[in-house]
Design a protein around this nucleic acid. Sequence first.
DNA 1: ACGTAAATGGAAGTCGAATTCCGGTTCCGG
DNA 2: CCGGAACCGGAATTCGACTTCCATTTACGT
Lengths: 193, 193
Amino acid sequence: MTTTAVPPAAPVGRALRGDAARNRERVLAAAREVFSSEGGDAQMEQIAKRACVGVGTLYRNFPTKQALLAELGRQFLDERIALVEEAIADPDPAAAFERLLRRTAADMSANAGLCHVLGDLQVDQVCPGAFLPLVHRTAVLLDRVRPTGAIRPDLTVDDFQAIMVGLSAALSTTSNWELFADMVIAGMRAPRD
Amino acid sequence: MTTTAVPPAAPVGRALRGDAARNRERVLAAAREVFSSEGGDAQMEQIAKRACVGVGTLYRNFPTKQALLAELGRQFLDERIALVEEAIADPDPAAAFERLLRRTAADMSANAGLCHVLGDLQVDQVCPGAFLPLVHRTAVLLDRVRPTGAIRPDLTVDDFQAIMVGLSAALSTTSNWELFADMVIAGMRAPRD
DNA sequence: ACGTAAATGGAAGTCGAATTCCGGTTCCGG
DNA sequence: CCGGAACCGGAATTCGACTTCCATTTACGT
């Protein structure tokens, strides 16, 4: 029962002052853009500039570059989890699963750079265990899909995670996500003897 | 007719003295190991230590960290090209192609870290056009394979390259290269309507 | 409108890692 | 076995990026 009490990047304190909150969002948005195009070693100053903010402001919101990355990762993971949850709830697991994969490929393609960075461990480094919820829910989904024959029986959650890492890397090279979604779906399907 | 005259990392000069050559190899081997396990931001000093050599020696052979990476990349590309050439020469293109993929997955898995680093552009950054020969020969191979139906007709060389990037990323997460080779092969196969 | 706590920006400090330098050591032809 | 050119090691330097700091400005309750 490890209640993962990850210290939020924007701790508790009290409510932010009106415009401070606005700046925080500006920074987050800028960070997404810059990391996405420049990769994980983009410079803090560049992010600050893009957000029309001084580096000081940036550091008041996120004590560290890693913390900033972690927050982006956390948000991304949350979206993923919500989508997986949705698929689990769907009465037609196979169809929902396929839809989820297409959606995921599209999302990854949209900001491929960032996904690639996040994939190269960063999130899990800063908030250990941040991936666990996603992994658990994905396991549930896979268990529901397996009986339909849409995936090979020996495919584990870890294999699936590895596929996602690969997909994200591939999509940072090409923009043809539909093709890659197709190929991933076909590749995971049980081989006909 | 761009005769890619890439300046070799170990220029021409004259022949190296007996033991200097030995050290050069030691460094290359150490670099492969260290980059492979530590990723692209491994430290030069660590490589030197692993090679039982001072950093000075390291820098005499490779003027820059990038140059060192580039040399590793060049060697890797050469191996790849040789293998592709072999597959082209094979009378049974489909079988040869599949064998090549399995072999590639195994190689990538063997030193996944390094492949991942090289995939994140580095080589092409230092010796622009270093990839071209591989791409050209791969295109030839694909042209020979397509008629056999082993790959979907719309798969371009660039798509294939992207798949390789994805594969290498996936294999830096898992060690089950056989599964991934299977899935890639299945994914590339033409979809049955 | 005023006072004050909250927020700002960007110059300056810090620190880690790449690269340089050179006095000492090792090969190798004669 | 000698001389000197080629090579070596690793301390010292350089450089670039993150992070800190504080004088100044801004938002907002009264």
